[in-house]
Computed example of a mutant assay.
Amino acid sequence: MDKANRKLSSWHGRNLSHAGRLVLVKSVLSSQMVHTLIVVNVPREVREEFDRLRKRFLWAGHENLTGGKCKVNWPTVARPLDLGGLGVLDIDRFARALRLRWLWQQWEMPNAPWADMEIPCNDTDKLMFAAATRIIIEDGATTSFWHCAWAKGQRPKDIAPDIYAASSKRKWSLRDALTEQAWVRLVDLQQIRTAEHLKQFVELWVITQSVSLVQNTVDRIIWKFNASGVYSVASAYRAQFVGHSSFNLKALIWKPWGPSKCKIFVWLVIRNRVWTSDRLAKRGWPRDPVCPLCRHQPETALHLIADCRYSRRI
Rank of each mutant, 00 (worst) to 15 (best):
D162N: 12
D92M: 07
L83T: 01
E180V: 08
K157R: 14
F129K: 00
E63K: 12
I91W: 12
K169V: 13
S167G: 03
D139M: 01
S168L: 15
A132C: 13
M109T: 15
N64L: 12
R175V: 10
R101E: 12
P110S: 07
G85L: 05
N111S: 15
N111H: 12
S167T: 05
A141Q: 13
H147V: 00
V88C: 13
A95L: 05
F145D: 05
T76I: 12
A115Q: 10
L83Q: 09
W104V: 07
G85T: 02
F145Q: 02
F145T: 01
A95Y: 03
D139Q: 00
A112W: 06
K69G: 04
D82G: 11
I163M: 06
A151W: 02
A97N: 02
H147R: 06
D116W: 01
K71A: 11
L174V: 06
N111W: 08
S168C: 15
F145K: 00
L86R: 01
T76W: 02
Y164K: 01
P161K: 05
C148F: 06
D92E: 14
K169Y: 15
D123F: 06
D82E: 10
Q106H: 10
D188Q: 11
A78S: 13
R96C: 06
P80K: 06
E118P: 03
T76S: 10
H147E: 11
K71T: 07
Q106W: 09
L100W: 05
L86E: 00
W146T: 01
A165M: 11
L100M: 14
W150E: 10
G67E: 15
I91C: 10
L81Q: 07
D92W: 11
K152A: 15
A160C: 08
G61P: 05
D176T: 12
R93Y: 12
P113Y: 06
L65H: 02
R93D: 03
G68Y: 05
W172V: 08
K171Q: 14
E118A: 09
L103R: 00
R155I: 01
V184W: 07
K71V: 11
N122M: 00
S173H: 04
R99N: 05
L174N: 05
W102Q: 02
T76Q: 12
K169Q: 14
N64F: 11
L174P: 04
D162W: 12
K157P: 04
G68W: 03
R99E: 04
D162C: 10
R185W: 11
A177E: 11
K152W: 11
W114L: 05
S173G: 08
G61M: 07
K157G: 02
A151Q: 04
G61R: 06
Q191D: 10
I119F: 04
V184P: 07
P113R: 08
L81T: 07
L89V: 09
P113Q: 09
R155P: 03
G67C: 11
W107N: 02
L100A: 02
K152I: 13
D158A: 03
D176E: 15
A97R: 02
L174Y: 02
G85E: 00
I91V: 11
W183E: 12
L100K: 01
